[in-house]
Design a binder for these strands. Structure first.
Length: 502
RNA sequence: GCCUCCAUGGUCAAGAGGCCUAAGACGUCGCCCUCUCACGGCGAAAACAGCGGUUCGAAUCCGCUUGGAGGUGCCA
């Protein structure tokens, strides 16, 4: 049988990394089996609708390279692929269940339910609908329907026995029916709840593997009851763990709360846009590479067979399996994300890197005035993500304020006095260099240093500080002198001399 | 509270009763390279949550405890 998987996001306006990973796994499983990957939009919650949110989904999937075979935009034989457009499909199915006694009309008001819920909570228990409306006679129900009373349709869960299902990752899961609530299938607005729609849609779309977040694990037995009621073969279930975030506990003032050992107290929480955790779009706009994000995300909760950890999407399509999927939540680690990205950046060709880096370089310096190719070359091994480029090279455009304490460096054997001496000596020497290329600067200065009786670092450290004002720079003294040009370099050295004399 | 699931270093994770004196990667620390930083090279510290069982033998199987995640919505 052909494998058919589906990614069924609700349009929220951005792509969570957890969702992206779900989409990725779902896509890979379909491709691995030469099956179909279907996109379905779950927009039955009209209250939370976000304008333009569907486009975000299309864009994210396209950017990530997860192309779907069927979906609202590309069509397919199992449409429509937007739940709100399937509205008319659900009620007849629900009525079928009512006929079979597996569901029933309920006319209880939200107020009555809310009251009962609070009552249950007060007593420390779980609210369960009391099947109040199950006992309405056929005539009573018809009368209320005729009178136009608002209603919902609820699943009639057995009060005894067990409900169960099998998950590919978790195995057989079984619960007592009496812990299950008579969940709403059709809402008062006529739209199905997720709980109902997913069953109908997955079945009518011929989905063979339902891969989705762990949050559905505890309701899956109820879904299976529905499949049974219809007499349908349930799909294979694959429940995926959530992607979490590691944080530290803070007090009201934003300071860290410490435990008795003076250690920060770690807390894990689900990733959330509100807490400032990055979405897929956020990462891309910070200059993360799609391939790096995909590569990192695929390994967060799944492990391949061997030691290799670099994979392209094409490779993943061949090797992805369900066995390697993890059972426990994984924490998104920004540091490893950064390492992957830096690694992907280093693997770019110089030309590719240059093209991608140029816009970011241009944010900090005027490309007309600098050798941007040389800057890019210096940056390639030092860039974790593109947004960290501008702060690294801003000093080229404008000499930063700095403290003369920077001239003191023990290992380089320099301090302010030595630096002043060196700068004063090297200034006229540099002024005499006509051919201001990096090679020439390097060769001439290196030739000259022995005559001073000092070691390389003792001369080059102050020189680099004088022209950069920074403790760390991409590239050393020669690179910076070259990039700045003769005039600007000499000007900065003059300023440094003045500063040291003051 | 109740229900379900999960539990190997700070993080991602390998591990299917003897191959475990527990792999690899990120991070951390040290050394080397070196005009700084980065890259690169070498090395180190760092884990089977606890307690009971089963077994000749347990990270691996079972139970309890603890911890974590999810559910408990006319959200998905």
């Amino acid at each position: 049988m052909e494998v058919r998987t589906r990614f069924a996001p609700s349009p929220t306006g951005y792509m969570h990394l957890g969702n992206l990973r779900t989409a990725l796994y779902t896509y890979l499983w379909a491709r691995r089996n030469n099956g179909k990957f279907i996109l379905r939009i779950e927009d039955t919650d009209q209250v939370r609708e976000v304008a333009g949110a569907v486009d975000v989904i299309y864009n994210s999937l396209r950017t990530a390279g997860l192309e779907h075979d069927e979906g609202p935009d590309v069509g397919g034989d199992y449409g429509p692929y937007v739940q709100s457009e399937r509205k008319a499909m659900y009620l007849p199915y629900a009525k079928q269940l009512v006929e079979k006694g597996c569901a029933y009309y309920c006319f209880c008001t939200p107020e009555r339910l809310e009251e009962a819920r609070q009552e249950a909570e007060k007593n420390g228990g779980t609210f369960k609908y009391d099947k109040h409306c199950l006992h309405l006679s056929k005539e009573e129900v018809q009368a209320k329907l005729d009178a136009g009373e608002p209603y919902v349709i609820r699943q009639n869960v057995p009060t005894t026995g067990k409900a169960s299902f099998d998950d590919v990752i978790y195995g057989h899961i079984e619960v007592d029916c009496d812990t299950l609530d008579d969940q709403v299938l059709i809402k008062a607005d006529g739209l199905p709840t997720y709980n109902f729609a997913n069953v109908i849609d997955d079945h009518t779309m011929g989905i063979t593997h339902v891969m989705r977040g762990n949050e559905y694990l505890s309701s899956a037995p109820k879904y299976n009851l529905l499949y049974e009621a219809f007499g349908w073969e349930p799909p294979k279930y694959v429940h995926l763990t959530p992607v979490m975030c590691r944080d530290f506990q803070r007090d009201e003032n934003g300071g860290y709360v410490l435990d008795e050992n003076g250690e920060k107290i770690g807390i894990t929480r689900k990733m959330s846009k509100r807490k400032g955790d990055p979405s897929f779009e956020d990462l891309l706009s910070q200059g993360y590479l799609v391939d790096a994000v995909i590569n990192y995300m695929v390994l967060l909760g799944w492990s391949p067979r061997g030691e290799e950890e670099f994979f392209s999407l094409d490779e993943l399509k061949k090797i992805f399996d369900l066995e390697g999927l993890s059972k426990s939540p994984s924490i998104f680690d920004m540091q490893k994300m950064n390492w992957f990205n830096a690694e992907y950046i280093r693997r770019l060709s110089d030309e590719e890197f240059y093209e991608k880096a140029l816009p970011w370089i241009a944010q900090a310096v005027d490309p007309a005035k600098f050798d941007t190719r040389r800057i890019a070359a210096l940056l390639k091994d030092r860039t974790e993500y593109f947004a960290d480029i501008p702060p690294k090279i801003g000093f080229l455009a404008r000499m930063p304020e700095y403290d003369i304490a920077l001239y003191t460096h023990k290992k380089m054997k320099t301090d302010s006095a030595v630096s002043l001496e060196i700068l004063t000596a090297v200034r006229p020497f540099l002024a005499g260099i006509a051919d201001w290329t990096e090679q020439e600067l390097h060769d001439r200065v290196m030739e000259w240093i022995p005559s001073t009786g000092m070691k390389n670092g003792t001369v080059l450290w102050p020189l680099r500080i004088a022209v950069s004002g920074l403790a760390n720079t991409p590239g050393g003294a020669f690179e910076i002198l070259y990039l700045l040009g003769k005039e600007e370099s000499l000007r900065r050295i003059d300023e440094a001399i003045a500063k040291l004399q003051a």
